[in-house]
Every structure is written in structure tokens, then in C-alpha cells.
């Protein structure tokens, strides 16, 4: 479960950011490095819902808790459980 989620989220992020840096450096800050913007955030939430069956409401999205690939995986796992 964890491995699968890990891979799914990283694949989604790779597609959204257009770089495999998210895989090689999963603690990179996506917003500070301007790899993600608000449009990408919405896409991420939609993909999480469609591919991982994880529901996140937009007002529940706190940038500070979702800023790196690792943090995003953690959040997704928390909600899938």
C-alpha cells in the first residue's frame, strides 16, 4: 500500500512538474522552486482523487503541509487510511 501510493504520487508529480527531480530529491520544496503553482495544486488534488481514491477539499490544502513530495505522500497516506 505504502509503496504503491509512493509510486503513484511521484508519477503524478513528475507529470505535473515535468521533472524527475521530485523522485531524486523528494524533500525539494515544490513551491519555493516554482515547480508547482495553484493550477498544479488543483490538478494534483484531482489526480489524487481519480488515481489514488484520496479526497482532499481545497480548503483543507495547507501549503505548509504539502510543500515537498514526501509531505504530499504522507498526507495522501493519512487520508487513504
Amino acid at each position: 500500500m505504502e509503496q504503491k501510493m509512493n509510486d503513484l504520487v511521484l508519477t503524478i508529480l513528475e507529470e505535473l512538474t515535468g521533472t524527475d527531480e521530485v523522485r531524486s530529491n523528494p524533500d525539494i520544496n515544490l513551491f519555493e522552486e516554482s515547480l508547482m503553482d495553484s493550477l498544479n495544486v488543483v490538478e494534483l488534488l484531482v489526480e489524487l482523487e481519480e488515481q489514488c481514491d484520496v479526497n482532499v477539499a481545497p480548503s483543507d490544502f495547507d501549503k505548509a503541509k504539502w510543500s515537498t513530495p514526501n509531505m504530499i505522500i504522507e498526507q495522501a497516506l493519512e487520508r487513504a487510511a
Binding site: S38, L39, V41, V42, E43, L45, V46, E49, E50, P58, S59, F61
Partner: peptide, 26 residues
């Protein structure tokens, strides 16, 4: 407005694939 209008509307538009392009939806 970002959380309760823009993002919610975007999610609906993307889910239902109302527009071909994400940029148009945005």
C-alpha cells in the same frame, strides 16, 4: 475566493473534463 470558488470550480471542471485544455478551465 481561491479556496471556495476558484479551486472548487476548477476541480469540478477538470473532473468532468468540461474543457479540453486545463488553461482554458483555469
Amino acid at each position: 475566493f481561491r479556496d471556495f470558488v476558484y479551486m472548487r470550480l476548477m476541480m469540478t471542471l477538470l473532473h468532468k473534463k468540461v474543457f479540453k485544455s486545463r488553461v482554458t478551465a483555469s
